[in-house]
Computed example of a mutant assay.
Amino acid sequence: MKSVVAFISIILFASQSFAASECAQLKAELKQMQTAQQQIMASLVNNHESFASSMEEYSSVVQTSQGSQIKGVAGEMKTSAQAFRTRGVQGKKIAKKLNDASTDLLARVASCLK
């Protein structure tokens, strides 16, 4: 009987250790998720600032340009627009990955708390 109680105690201890280890891993992943979100937000702010700076630059060039120069500026504007669209597509992909990882992580946290 003592050996059964000891065995059950060992199983319970191992189970608690595993749960603590699993929760520690979840905590680490939450910190990684927070870092990723901070990087995405910083990137969004930088993209907006870059876009605004580009538009200001193009606006001042157009105001002082002659006919042939405007065509060159228009071409640069189209190139910039495409670059911002590409950044947007990449941002959407990263945001989806983060959202999927967040959903998975939150589900595991919820099960850890049960």
Rank of each mutant, 00 (worst) to 15 (best):
F51R: 14
M55V: 02
S15W: 06
K31I: 11
Q38K: 11
S65Y: 00
I8N: 09
L26P: 14
K93L: 12
S21A: 08
S60H: 03
I40D: 02
H48P: 02
V4N: 01
K71Y: 03
M41L: 14
T79G: 05
S60F: 01
D100N: 02
K96R: 14
S102H: 04
K78F: 08
S59P: 04
S60I: 01
A81W: 07
A20V: 14
V62L: 01
A107K: 12
L30S: 09
S50F: 01
Q69M: 05
L105M: 03
K114Y: 08
V45L: 12
L12D: 11
A81L: 13
N99A: 15
A20I: 15
S80D: 10
T86P: 03
L113I: 14
E29R: 14
V45T: 12
T79P: 03
Q25N: 12
K97E: 15
Q25Y: 09
I11C: 05
N99F: 08
K2N: 12
S102N: 08
T79S: 07
F7R: 07
K2F: 09
A107N: 07
Q32H: 05
S102E: 11
V73R: 00
H48Q: 15
Q69N: 03
G88D: 04
S59W: 00
R87N: 10
K31A: 15
L12C: 09
V5R: 10
S68Q: 07
R87T: 09
S111V: 05
R85W: 05
T64H: 01
A14M: 08
S80G: 06
A20P: 13
M77F: 04
I10L: 15
N47H: 03
V109C: 09
I10K: 15
T103Y: 03
K93H: 06
A20C: 14
A42L: 13
F18V: 12
S43E: 15
T35W: 10
C112F: 03
L44I: 05
